[in-house]
């Protein structure tokens, strides 16, 4: 396939056996990423890497399912996570939509994608946090939100202001990690994913000998 050819996507093709089996990997990466980030006391959540990774390879639908399932499973331990299911789904959809349009192979394109992904995340989380939890959820960042609110800031402004920066940063780091991983995945593995063709090394001249 050359760059100019448009690839046809279908939901059925999206959910190949391989895509199905990548979902649990994505869920586990989300979980471990979040766990690791808090273990290392990093100021970011980093709990969406799996969803982003799956969406980058398999497109929006499989990505959305990964996000949904992650929050269902973490919700088993803490049902508060159920409330954030829409955020998780939107993260998968937005990333997947960018992947479909080959936004992750050129640096200026993925910069745009990252910012939009960060914005989508904050905008989808804001109504939930503000309307269901009154602006705070008990996380580290919500202490800052609370401080702003105490200083008289508007609740929406306080939340989006504090979490906005963190969210964009979170997405940038997550995407960079995914790109680093994709870089080392062999071509023959990549092409089995519906968006994998976009990441194939030496798209023009492929003469890799595989066994």
């Amino acid at each position: 396939m050359t760059k100019n050819e448009r690839k046809q996507f279908s939901i059925k093709e999206d959910f190949s056996m391989l895509a199905l089996l990548i979902i649990p990997v994505g869920v586990a990466v989300n979980f471990v990423g979040g766990q690791l980030a808090s273990l290392l006391r990093l100021p970011l959540y980093l709990d969406t890497i799996g969803t982003i990774f799956v969406a980058m390879l398999c497109g929006p639908w499989v990505g959305a399912i990964t996000g949904l399932l992650t929050n269902i499973l973490t919700g088993i331990a803490n049902p508060v996570n159920f409330a954030f299911i829409p955020v998780a789904i939107i993260a998968g959809l937005v990333t997947g939509a960018f992947a479909r349009h080959d936004y992750f192979s050129v640096w200026w394109k993925w910069l745009i994608a990252m910012v939009v992904m960060g914005a989508a995340s904050i905008l989808s989380a804001a109504p939930i946090v503000v309307l269901m939890f009154g602006g705070v959820t008990g996380s580290g960042a919500s202490l800052i939100t609370a401080t702003f609110m105490a200083a008289g800031a508007n609740i929406w402004g306080a939340f989006i202001g504090t979490e906005g920066l963190f969210n964009v940063l979170d997405r940038i780091i997550s995407v960079l990690i995914c790109l680093a991983v994709i870089k080392v995945i062999p071509n023959r593995n990549l092409i089995k994913f519906s968006c994998g063709m976009f990441y194939v090394k030496d798209r023009e001249e492929i003469a890799e000998v595989t066994e």
Partner: peptide, 10 residues
């Protein structure tokens, strides 16, 4: 995290 993802996908 990187080897985890990579191992998972292969």
């Amino acid at each position: 995290i990187v080897p985890l993802i990579l191992g998972g996908i292969i």
